[in-house]
Design a binder for these strands. Structure first.
Lengths: 357, 357
DNA sequence: TTGTATGCGTTATCAC
DNA sequence: GTGATAACGCATACAA
């Protein structure tokens, strides 16, 4: 054991720990010399399907443990061209309002030996800056839950970074995507509400730059038209709690009276809408007014709300996302595919619904 | 331009995009030959404070843009020993119940040119497995929002991975940490409640393995004792919504009647507690019962709750965390320091409080 | 300022 | 099964 090797163990609370020693990193050579084998033997021991004899393996592992050796990730990925890291590009608001998605994606990737690097951006128009960051980091692929332009998508291809869109489409272009069918979900909700006799609808819409909001809105208006019901009163929202209350008041302002039902672009706004309907207008929900949301977040189930909503199957979608992205990374080929999941009606207590068809 | 260079541009929707070409990556050599300079010149152009002539820089950047060149992160970090990646080790539940922390940390690190790799774990006893993952990845440091044992902390030191504890302590040992003073916060809340005349207290405690819960509990019992008030009725909770309702019912079971005030280990449980108090027991909050929480999450402010709670200064804490960790990474030295922030009382509408001292 | 040469710590390709 | 040896793509010391 030469003196250039780092100490094997360290006393806890040692004075040395105050000043971090510029200790040389433990490399596979250190392990090799300690175990009395070649460096390549050490390398093989850390590769899953390699051919090493039992005893060599044992000696190497013993030495490795004594030295606290872990293969250098940078060196490894330099040669394997794999970092076992994937980027997740997502709006900050999405994390705050719907953390389930990030949590589930992280879990699914982790179960497959891959870690998530978070690229959150505050506003959709800062996406370019965020993407510039993405290229600087050693990721094998990316999950993109953001409105990607054709140019931005092309850059992923040029840089050979496979990606899967999460709940987004690419206009006029194929791309791998995992989506929940927002259009169908919206139509379903309208049908169920209409089935219970609701005729006059309000809509607290999501942000203009949200493609999800657009699809939900389109589904609502299309279905209402088919049912020969009047077009909804639409007011703008920003997906946050305050937007729900503002939207409720705006609808009352415009209509003078409450509609039969208000469909909100997401659960958080629906909750804000309920609170405003109850506190500001003393309305009985769902007696005088039905209110529904989209997403199926945890707080939608709280007793004070028991929101009637459409739950996105987050877990299956995350599984599909991880499988698809890792498939792309491993196979290197891509036949663009969209996997479409359906939302599930949560029959809460904030809306009168007709029977499921 | 030799044929081995990747194509500069690509037609969108091209059939080639269906089968991802195993194109060679663009390296600094490609840029160098295109710009007619040496590889090291290219390298220097991508280093902030390097000495390069205006024209060389311009030619290199032009070539780089034409080729879509980005320095290979793995190769760079192999030599610089920096990945510009930090790990965040955190419980999944924390993300779901309090996503603000992760969002704010990610934002603060991003503003400093560093990205976050997420290491979430489902249960505290799976931390070891998660830490094993941490060593496999090229991170420059870590934020640890988990109960670290002395052995686990020592491993960070041995592996020369600087870390900052977030809202945790290390028993009998110094470590860098950013914390919110939970003990003080708990005492403050008791004082304010006692100041309004509350005498009989209930506590819906956090999980046994949560050090935050322990401190909050200790603050509560200590302050009650000092005020010569009876010890609180304590029931266990798991930090989730259901625990709040269960806790409320358990307290009623044990006491037969409602106490004057129930302090909940976090906001989510407080919300569950409020819902149960109102729905199950028809209690007026805060008329018949005061209920308080901890954290200051977004939904605590919703009209249906307007929870009286203690807000953790998440943003300043995240700033401090980023500054401290990056300082440790850059300086390589460490004089263990704790930066302690105070929680702020949010005078909501779910508790009668005495005057602030 | 610029180019040459070297090394970072692995994995992969060979002979043996 | 094992050990030399050659990449991987960059940053940097040093010479020019």
């Amino acid at each position: 054991m030469t003196s250039s090797l780092p100490p094997v163990s360290d006393t806890i609370g040692d004075i040395q720990s105050l000043i971090r020693r510029p200790t040389r990193r433990v490399t596979s050579y250190d392990v090799a010399s300690r175990a009395g084998v070649s460096q390549s033997a050490v390398s093989r021991c850390f590769k899953p399907g390699a051919s090493v004899s039992k005893e060599t393996y044992a000696r190497v592992m013993k030495a490795a443990q004594e030295l606290d050796y872990t293969p250098n990730a940078a060196a490894r990925s330099l040669i394997t061209r794999r970092s076992n890291l994937v980027g997740v590009v997502v709006n900050e608001l999405a994390i705050l309002h719907y953390p389930d998605i990030l949590t589930e994606l992280t879990r699914q990737f982790a179960e497959r030996g891959v870690r998530v690097v978070l690229f959150s951006f505050p506003r959709e128009n800062e996406l370019d800056r965020t993407l510039a960051e993405v290229w600087q980091h050693p990721i094998d692929g990316a999950v993109v839950a953001a409105r990607l332009s054709a140019v931005q998508a092309a850059e992923f291809d040029r840089r050979c970074v496979p990606f899967v869109l999460f709940n987004r489409h690419l206009r006029d272009q194929q791309a791998n995507a995992i989506v929940c069918d927002q259009y169908e979900a919206a139509r379903t909700m309208v049908s169920r509400l209409a089935g219970a006799g609701h005729k006059r609808f309000g809509l607290i819409d999501g942000p203009a730059d949200s493609s999800i909001a657009q699809e939900r809105r389109r589904g609502i208006t299309d279905r209402l038209r088919e049912l020969a019901l009047p077009a909804p009163v639409v007011v703008a929202g920003e997906y946050d709690y305050a937007s729900g209350g503002r939207g409720m008041r705006a609808i009352m302002d415009q209509s003078g009276t409450a509609p039969d039902a208000i469909i909100c672009g997401n659960d958080v706004m629906a909750i804000g809408c309920i609170d405003s309907a109850r506190h500001d207008f003393r309305l009985d929900i769902p007696g005088q007014l039905s209110i529904t949301g989209f997403d199926g977040i945890a707080s939608a189930g709280w007793l004070s709300y028991q929101l009637t909503t459409l739950r996105q199957p987050v877990q299956p979608m995350a599984v599909a996302t991880a499988d698809m992205l890792l498939g792309l990374i491993r196979s290197n080929t891509s036949y663009p595919e969209r996997r479409v999941f359906s939302a599930v009606v949560v029959e809460g207590g904030t809306a009168r619904l007709g029977p499921a068809v």
